[in-house]
Design a protein around this nucleic acid. Structure first.
Lengths: 246, 246
DNA sequence: CGCGAATTTGAGTATCATCAATTAGGGTGG
DNA sequence: CCACCCTAATTGATGATACTCAAATTCGCG
C-alpha cells in the first residue's frame, strides 16, 4: 500500500529545467538574468499531465507544490457553504497556481483542468531553499505573490463597480492581453469555461452571460460561436468601460 | 529644498522593537518563536503618526515600506478610470498594508487614515535581508502575502454571489471577528467608514447600505447610531448567510 | 442517430440604483 | 453661545438591470 501521506503526485518524475523552457520569459523565471535562471535549474520538479475535467488539487489539500501551467487551461474554484461552486480564477499557460495555499498550509481553492493540460509541480520547500541563496529569486517569488494580490484587486473592482456588459468586456479583454503576451492570437480564442462558469467568475447568471454575448455580437464587437470567440472590434470593446456614465 | 527623491518619510525615527510590542501576537511576528522575534529586533523602523484624512501612500508611489497599523483605522482605495474612488480594503490595528506594491515596485492602491493613526514603517528591503538569514521569518512574510490573497478571495466571493443583506452581514461579522482577535469588543464598535465608503467596498450604493442597516435594525440584529454599531444578535446575523435559498 | 447537457431566447419579477426631498450633525464664525 | 452652512445619513418613489422560471434549440458524445 502506498504511503498515505499525500495524494499520488509525480507519476513520472521527468526532470524539467526552466532554462530550456519555452515559457521561461513569462513563467517563474520571469525577471531573472541568464545565470540566475540556470541556478533555477537546481530545482528539480516533475511534469504532470492532467486530463480535462480532472482535479489537480483540492481546497483543503496540504500545500506542497506550486504549479506552473505548461499547456492548457485551469479554473480555480471554491465550494460555497450551500454547496454551489464559485469560480475564482482562470489560468492559462505560463501562469502559476497554488500560491493561496501558503497562508494556511492548505490550498484555499481547487484547481480543475478545463482541457487536457500539462503542469510543472514545483515543491515549494525546495524553491524556498533556493531562494534563500538568491535574493533575486526570492524577490521573484515575492513579486509573483504580489502580482496575484493585484490580479484579485482588479477582479474586485470589476465585481464591485461594473455592470454585466462591462464585466464581460473586461474579462475578454484581460484574457485577450494574456493570450497576446503568450504569443497567441489576442482576437481569436477558445473559451474553455462554460457560460455557468464564466457567470460564477464574473458574478452573474449564465443566462445573463449568454444574453451579453448576444448583445456584443449584435453590436458587432464579437463573433461568438459557442466557446469560440473572435473579437472584431477591440476598441469598441474597450470603450465599454469608458462609457460608464451611469 | 528637500531632496525630491521621495515624499518625506520618517519624521522622528523612533526606534521600535517588535519583541516588546503589544501587537506582537497578531502582527508581523505572528507565528515566530521568542528568539526569532528578538532577531526581528534587528529590524530598525520608524513609527509615524498619520492624522485623520491624511494619505499614507498613494497609488503609484514607489514601493519601499510595508506598513503595520499600530492604532487606528485605514482604508485602501483605487481611483477608477472615471475618477470615482473604489474602496478595496479596511485595515485595523495589527494588520499590514502595502504588500500589493511589491508586484510592480509601486503601490497598487492608496492608504488613507480614517482617524488619527500610528503605523510602523518597515523598510521592505531590510526585512528581506533579515528574511534571508531566517527561513522562518521568510516563511512568515510569504504567509502574510498569501493571507492577503486569501482575504481578497473571500471578498470576491462576497461580491460575486451575495445580495445586499448578505454582503453587509458578512462585512460586519468579518470586522467583528477581527476586533475580537485584537481584544476589542466583537459586538460594539465604531465604523470609521462612511456609508459611501462601505458601499464602494461592498459593491452597493450608499442608499442601499443605509437601507440595509435600517432593515437589520428592524430585524433586531443591530443597533445603529450613525457610525456606532452594536450587534445584538450575532447568530441571527450569521444566519443571513445560510438563508441563501434564492 | 439519439440522448443528455449546454446554450439561447422570452416573459415576468425582484432587487438594487437613481433621483429627490428631508433630517440630523459637526464645525465655523458672528 | 447660537445661528448657519455644509456634509452625511435616512427615507420615499420610480425605474433599470439582472435574476428566475420556462421553453426551444443546438451541440457533443456515445
Amino acid at each position: 500500500m502506498a504511503p498515505a501521506s499525500a495524494r499520488p503526485i509525480p507519476v513520472a518524475a521527468i526532470k524539467t529545467q526552466c532554462s530550456s523552457c519555452h515559457l521561461k520569459d513569462i513563467c517563474l523565471p520571469c525577471g531573472l538574468t541568464g545565470p540566475e535562471v540556470e541556478r533555477l535549474d537546481g530545482l528539480k520538479f516533475a511534469r504532470r499531465k492532467i486530463a480535462a475535467g480532472e482535479v489537480l488539487y483540492r481546497e483543503g489539500d496540504r500545500f506542497q507544490f506550486i504549479y506552473a501551467v505548461r499547456s492548457g487551461t485551469f479554473k480555480s474554484s471554491l465550494m460555497l457553504a450551500d454547496g454551489r461552486e464559485q469560480v475564482s480564477g482562470l489560468h492559462i499557460a505560463g501562469e502559476l497556481m497554488g500560491l493561496d495555499g501558503l497562508a494556511a498550509g492548505k490550498y484555499a481553492s481547487s484547481a480543475t483542468a478545463l482541457e487536457d493540460t500539462e503542469v510543472c509541480a514545483i515543491p515549494y520547500a525546495h524553491l524556498n531553499e533556493l531562494a534563500q541563496q538568491s535574493p533575486n529569486l526570492q524577490m521573484v517569488v515575492a513579486r509573483l505573490m504580489s502580482r496575484e494580490i493585484v490580479r484579485e484587486h482588479s477582479l474586485m473592482m470589476l465585481l464591485g463597480s461594473m455592470n454585466a456588459e462591462e464585466r464581460l468586456a473586461a474579462f475578454l479583454l484581460n484574457l485577450s492581453q494574456r493570450m497576446k503576451a503568450r504569443g497567441y492570437s489576442p482576437c481569436e480564442f477558445h473559451l474553455r469555461m462554460s457560460r455557468a462558469e464564466i457567470g460564477s467568475y464574473l458574478g452573474m447568471k449564465l443566462e445573463t452571460v449568454s444574453r451579453t454575448f448576444s448583445a456584443f455580437q449584435q453590436q458587432r464587437l464579437l463573433e461568438v460561436d459557442k466557446k469560440h470567440i473572435r473579437i472584431t472590434d477591440l476598441e469598441g470593446l474597450t470603450r465599454m468601460f469608458e462609457t460608464r456614465v451611469h
